[in-house]
């Protein structure tokens, strides 16, 4: 399974100079390009899933890519419930997998 950034050298859009950025995802450094969304950076680095669902703990990453499905929610710089596919990444962003609250035990 590989998701990746199109290699600039072979990209038909002929990309110009770009600004590299680095974010951390659950403590690990991930590199991307200024102008990418958080989802773009993660997928570009072959990170496919960054959340688990509440009831079954199933992995979720990007699905609709346009802000509709809310699969890609992450915590960014201490703020939860940010759609990774809608938020432009900035160097130094701290992304944490959104801890899906487990079902309550005390019921």
């Amino acid at each position: 399974m590989v998701t990746r950034l199109v290699p600039p050298a072979s990209d038909p859009v002929e990309p110009g100079a770009f600004t590299p950025i680095t974010i951390t995802v659950n403590g690990e450094s991930v590199s991307g390009v200024l102008g990418q969304t958080l989802a773009g950076v993660m997928l570009g680095a072959n990170v496919l899933a960054w959340r688990t669902t509440r009831r079954q703990g199933r992995p979720r990453g990007a699905f609709c890519g346009i802000g509709v499905c809310f699969d890609c929610l992450v915590e960014v710089n201490g703020q939860r419930d940010v759609r990774a596919c809608q938020r432009r990444a900035a160097s130094g962003d701290v992304v944490v997998s959104q801890g899906a609250p487990p079902p309550r035990e005390d019921r």
């Binding site: 590989v2 998701t3 990746r4 950034l5 199109v6 990209d11 859009v13 990309p15 990418q36 969304t37 989802a39 773009g40 997928l43 570009g44 990007a62 699905f63 609709c64 890519g65 346009i66 596919c85």
Partner: peptide, 12 residues
């Protein structure tokens, strides 16, 4: 979504 990632991110 796949197309948006291709066009808007250049991600395959």
């Amino acid at each position: 979504g796949a197309q948006a990632l291709a066009k808007g991110e250049r991600v395959a």
